[in-house]
Design a protein around this nucleic acid. Structure first.
Length: 765
DNA sequence: GAGTTTGAAACT
DNA sequence: CAGTTTCAAACTC
């Protein structure tokens, strides 16, 4: 036994040493030879003394990792970031970016080849980075209860050329943040930890951390594939196991500082995000990450295309933390930052821009910004156009972290389905409206968005948007008296800042008023924790989850609170149920309900099929919410077109039986379906009658996916506290946690344990 | 595009 | 907690 161990150790040693130049390590003869040499060497002895090395399986780990096998994933997300996230819930709007214009690129403009395709390579890179950056990050993680490292497979790292920007003097941490945080976010440092480094850019570093933390979620999402390293040893072994031929391991050690990170976010062939620090630039994050435009070059463009943009994959993120940090930064440095925001079209926008752009798939930059905190509602609007069927939509995914927050997921590649299912997010809507955003939301660089301008012709803009079909994807409000700080405001309600296309007057729902917005939001949430929660919940098929009549039908999706329609017969968009594309339920107090999606009395047309998807969400007692992202292949497929809107993406509800083609006369329907292909067409019911309800406007989320908190009142009479009347606030405490029965599902689930979105519910962290 | 209707949100 | 007011979207003309 002992001998065996020794041999293993030797083997390990050999691997470490040879890793660089001899990928082939399987040969016994070589082993024997090398062993003989090393056995007596001091180095060997030293290595041998290092107990943890467990070479035995190391070599194959990489290849064999099965995402599914990580049952313990949840533990990974201990929600180190909770606090920060909490604040960041309010999202900045994303903007679409033109896929053709890469926002981020490496300095040299090169992009890893086939980055998307090669998940393994990505892994290796990640690993290497981790190992290289090592210490600090690991330590930090441990401190934060992040005991595990998560590797985002979707991301590719690229070894920077000598020209890489990282300054040698930069601390590893800073580098790590830069590298990981923004792009690939393999490691997430504690967000709450204030900058301690003496470096001039500590702030930025800190911000980067935030960003990184956000990415943390990204990582999760990305994949369906996660690697969790419990200990450094594991990582090491993993590294060793990685293809030795790559020589990364050694390369990293030797040239760690040169690493330039390129994250091919969508490793699966999805768009890749690449971003790198700019040469010689100390502040990597703000400038390089956010201002993608400067980075772009022809090469990049090509790369992006190669990476999968062509496929239409795109990702969108809400800029949250970054937004906040950025905002601060802007405030501090209005001038310098002014041009930072990128429009989807690649134009720079003034700092004042309401939205933080960066939605387009190509926009890796968004990734930089943590998507957490995006309110589901934000996604709600559906894009209209959505280039349906556009693969793009799939590329980005968002995780719901809490009732109100969402984590952006990077599509990982292979699991587009997951992404699609999970969060079709804004992507598609962006597409649709993305175009719009590009124009509207992202004014030319010279243009500074301002209210005055916005106010100029609110309706006009809106109409235009609607007519163009772009509109819904992006929330646009027309508030005149609420200052966009009340739920009356769609933007605010959706958790996004107002943008240029908004026609609001005296708007405070802008990044520059972030504090006010957050405060107001908190206030509202204090009143009604579910105020910002998705209004529509898609019922689960699981028998155990059927709670009321409405849920029994295929159209199990339902409005959380129910409507109170008196005159519209629930046949107009005045009705939130109808608007949300769901049938009325017992929760509704409507009169003369004729909801095409399903009447309160149970006459509802059966519209949806939700069987395939599954997702669960559980909350911890302390309010931590675990989000389960389910990667459901089926959804990805035709049946479920990715939700057009960002929110939608998040919400599978997109599955509403609406066909994009059958949109109501008013394009205003947000369209989930629009973005998607006809796949949304109902299989039953409407199809017969020829009536297709409009796509849901509201964000919907699968019931499973919803935090228990939200579900509490939800459509289940049985379940938690339910408000008797629509007017009642549903504040029911989480119940049933863990009670959800997943039911048979083919999909893979990721459970993200994250920050509680509702302050009131949040206790720890 | 102006005006009306509607029902959610907010307020009392 | 019911009733009322406010609000902005949805809708109509």
């Amino acid at each position: 036994m002992e001998e065996r161990v020794e041999i293993s150790a030797k083997e390990s040693c050999r691997e470490v040493i040879e890793v660089t130049d001899t990928p082939e390590r399987s040969k016994n003869t070589q082993i024997a030879a090398s062993m003989a040499k090393f056995e007596d060497s001091p180095v060997f002895m030293f290595l041998n003394s290092l107990s943890p090395i467990m070479p035995v399986k190391s070599t194959h780990i990489t290849q064999t990792i099965n995402p599914l096998s990580f049952a313990s994933i949840p533990s990974v997300f201990t929600s180190p970031h909770v606090s920060s996230l909490r604040e960041s819930r309010f999202l900045r709007r994303h903007q679409l970016s033109d896929p053709s214009k890469p926002e981020f690129s490496s300095d040299d403009g090169t992009i890893p080849n086939a980055s998307m395709e090669n998940a393994d390579a990505t892994k290796e890179l990640d690993e290497q980075k981790e190992s290289g950056d090592g210490g600090d990050l690991a330590a930090e993680l441990s401190h934060d209860d992040c005991s595990m490292f998560v590797v985002d497979f979707t991301k590719d790292y690229k070894c920077a050329s000598p020209s890489s920007n990282l300054r040698p003097g930069c601390s590893l941490e800073a580098k790590a943040m830069t590298d990981y945080g923004c792009t690939s976010s393999a490691l997430v440092p504690p967000m709450h930890e204030p900058p301690q480094r003496g470096e001039a850019n500590t702030d930025r570093v800190y911000q980067n951390r935030k960003a990184a933390s956000c990415d943390w979620e990204h990582m999760v999402s990305d994949t369906s594939e996660l690697l969790v390293f419990e200990s450094p040893n594991d990582r090491d072994s993993y590294i060793k196991s990685v293809d030795p031929g790559t020589s990364f391991y050694t390369g990293i050690k030797s040239d760690m500082q040169r690493l330039q990170v390129i994250s091919a976010v969508d490793s699966g062939g999805n768009e890749a995000e690449t971003f790198s620090t700019q040469p010689g630039e100390g502040d990597v994050m703000d400038n390089s990450l956010i201002s993608g435009p400067s980075l772009s070059n022809s090469d990049e463009k090509m790369d992006y295309e190669q990476l999968g943009f062509n496929r239409g994959m795109r990702r969108r993120c809400l800029v949250f933390e970054m937004g906040g940090s950025r905002r601060k930064h802007l405030e501090e440095n209005p001038v310098s930052d002014s041009s930072v925001w990128l429009c989807s079209d690649g134009n720079m926008t003034s700092s004042d821009q309401k939205l933080v752009p960066l939605n387009r798939g190509n926009e890796s930059s968004r990734r930089l910004m943590p998507g957490i905190g995006l309110h589901l509602n934000a996604l709600a609007t559906t894009p209209k156009d959505s280039k349906i069927g556009n693969p793009d939509s799939s590329s980005s995914a968002r995780l719901l972290i809490g009732p109100s927050s969402i984590v952006n997921l990077h599509p990982s590649t292979t699991n587009q389905g997951l992404l699609d299912n999970i969060l079709p997010v804004a992507t598609s809507d962006r597409d649709g409206d993305g175009m719009e955003n590009v124009g509207d939301a992202c004014p030319p660089s010279s243009y500074a968005a301002n209210e005055e301008i916005n106010q100029s012709s609110p309706k006009k803009k809106r109409r235009r948007a609607e007519q163009t079909g772009e509109g819904e994807s992006c929330k646009r409000c027309n508030c005149k008296r609420s200052k966009c700080l009340k739920l009356y405001c769609e933007c605010f309600a959706a958790g996004v800042y107002c943008v240029e296309p908004c026609a609001c007057i005296d708007c405070f729902n802008k990044p520059i008023h972030e504090d006010t917005v957050l405060a107001t939001r908190k206030q509202i949430e204090s009143r009604n924790p579910l105020a910002f929660a998705p209004k529509v919940i898609r019922g689960s098929d699981s028998p155990s989850e059927i709670r009321d009549n409405s849920s029994k039908t295929p159209a199990s999706a339902r409005h959380k609170r129910g409507c109170n329609c008196k005159k519209s017969g629930c046949l107009k968009k005045y009705c939130e149920c109808y608007q949300g594309g769901v049938g009325c339920s017992i929760n509704c107090r409507c009169e003369g309900c004729k909801n095409a999606f399903g009447r309160k009395d149970g006459m509802e047309a059966e519209v949806e099929e939700e069987e395939t998807q599954s997702s669960e969400m559980s909350m911890s007692d302390k309010g931590l919410q675990k989000i389960v992202i389910e990667n459901d292949v089926e959804q990805n497929t035709e049946e479920f077109a990715p939700p057009a809107t960002p929110l939608r993406g998040g919400r599978p509800s997109a599955q509403l039986p609406v066909s994009s083609k059958k949109k109501p006369p008013r394009s205003s329907f947000p369209s989930i379906g629009s973005s998607s292909s006809t796949s949304f067409l109902p299989r039953q019911g409407f199809g017969k009658s020829g009536f297709f309800p409009p796509p849901p406007k509201f964000d919907s989320i699968r019931e499973d996916e919803i935090p228990d908190v939200l579900q509490g009142g939800g459509g289940s009479p049985n379940g938690g506290v339910q408000s008797a009347s629509p007017n009642r606030k549903r504040v029911s405490p989480p119940h049933n946690a863990g009670g959800m029965s997943p039911g048979p599902r083919s999909s893979r689930k990721l459970i993200l344990e994250s920050i509680p979105s509702f302050p009131s519910l949040t206790r720890n962290q």
